[in-house]
């Protein structure tokens, strides 16, 4: 499975011909620097998920409520997500045609959409419910962690497959 199943080759060519893609491809260090920022943002994003989802499972920062933790870490989550998407788009533009054939990249995009969908729907809902230790909490927390980790692991596999 790859993204060519749903998108035409011209889409990826178009991205690769964007000035940002040209620029990054033509340099040695810019790719490394952009990817470093991408990974640092990923660390912060996963950090927010670990603390909030552990709490949703009744672990970690138990003396605070999930809703409060989620609210405090919310800006960290959204800032790191936006940073990841912006740097990710730049990295994508630099090698869009290669990525169009990549299986892990396709998985990564699917899990990204899934993770965001889970985050703004059921994840938000169980936290807003505010019932401590509701049985659904653990299911939703596991699903959320699974999606975000899958993104990281699929991303890690891109250079190898």
């Amino acid at each position: 499975m790859n993204l060519l199943d749903i998108l035409p080759t011209s889409f990826f060519r178009w991205w690769e011909n964007m000035p940002v893609g040209h620029y990054i491809r033509g340099t040695t260090w810019v790719f490394a620097i952009v990817e470093t920022v991408h990974i640092m943002a990923l660390a912060v994003l996963l950090g927010t998920r670990v603390v909030v989802d552990l709490r949703l499972m009744g672990l970690g920062m138990k003396r605070q409520s999930t809703a409060e933790l989620s609210e405090i870490l919310g800006p960290w989550f959204w800032t790191s997500l936006v940073t990841m998407i912006v740097t990710g788009v730049c990295l994508f533009a630099s090698e869009a045609v290669r990525l169009s054939h990549s299986e892990p990249f396709a998985f990564k995009m699917i899990f990204l959409l899934l993770a965001i969908a889970v985050h703004v729907t059921i994840h938000r809902k169980v936290i807003a419910n505010g019932v401590e230790g509701a049985p659904l909490d653990k299911v939703v927390a596991s699903l959320s962690l699974l999606c975000w980790f899958a993104i990281a692991l699929a991303g890690r596999a891109i250079p190898f497959l």
């Binding site: 660390a43 950090g47 927010t48 670990v50 603390v51 970690g60 980790f149």
Partner: peptide, 11 residues
């Protein structure tokens, strides 16, 4: 390794 990393650095 990456799961362990996320859990430790994430906290």
């Amino acid at each position: 390794h990456i799961l362990g990393l996320s859990l430790s650095v994430g906290t």
